[in-house]
């Protein structure tokens, strides 16, 4: 079975400044890893490259063994089929209720919507199903973002600083849920974070240094 994610010799620079140089990474199906490093070291760029949202200067990106296409519409299609993303702040569509957000995510991914209630219950959000995003607390919103990404049942789940806005209790809870639910549905998980507390949940950590000369851990 092909790797959920494979990055080969990735080079990426922004405004002439090298961010990533010859970076490589493999993530098997269902495997979980942390991408650790200080702010500005390229964690988010790396996740965006993995999702096909950024194009590297050189190197290959393979999702479930399929090379990232050059055409934007094809990249969108591949992402739709294989990737779910949890952002730090961009969590839900503002005009839709939590339930409608999950239903839309499932529909766009071509997944059935029958798992929504179970997922909401797992994340202790059943009572907030009809609420708009602005009515949710920070912890609820972050759990909702995890639900939104998981409902599409992606082969690869990418999470960018998913716990940065949360207190210790909520951080622990969100991380535990993310790890457990991703494992339950067989999604590979890559979390970009500077929060070393997450090491308690995911042993494999890939450290990115501030300098561009780095390799996979």
């Amino acid at each position: 079975m092909p790797n959920a994610l494979e990055l080969r010799s990735i080079r990426f620079s922004r405004n002439g400044r090298p961010i990533l140089a010859d970076f490589g990474l493999s993530l098997a199906p269902g495997e979980q890893a942390l991408l650790l490093g200080p702010s500005g070291c390229g964690k988010t760029s790396l996740l965006n490259i993995a999702a096909g949202l950024l194009t590297p200067d050189s190197g290959d990106v393979l999702l479930m063994g399929e090379r990232m296409p050059a055409r934007a519409a094809d990249r969108d299609a591949l992402r739709r089929r294989t990737v779910g993303i949890v952002f730090q702040t961009l969590r839900l569509i503002s005009a839709l209720s939590l339930r409608d957000n999950l239903a839309l995510a499932a529909r766009l991914a071509g997944q059935p919507a029958d798992g929504i209630d179970r997922l909401l219950a797992e994340l202790s959000l059943s009572h907030r199903a009809g609420a708009r995003p602005r009515a949710l607390s920070q912890g609820e919103a972050q759990r909702a973002a995890i639900a939104r990404a998981l409902v599409a049942r992606p082969a690869l789940l990418l999470a960018d600083e998913p716990t940065s806005a949360l207190d210790d209790a909520n951080t622990d809870r969100a991380a535990a849920l993310l790890v457990r639910l991703a494992a339950e549905q067989g999604s590979a998980l890559l979390i970009a974070t500077h929060d070393s507390r997450l090491k308690a949940h995911i042993p494999r950590a890939i450290q990115l240094a501030a300098a561009p000369d780095r390799v996979a851990a």
Partner: peptide, 12 residues
């Protein structure tokens, strides 16, 4: 919102 929609798989 629109960016998130695109990330979720909606086309331009």
């Amino acid at each position: 919102d629109m960016a998130l929609l695109r990330v979720m798989g909606a086309s331009r």
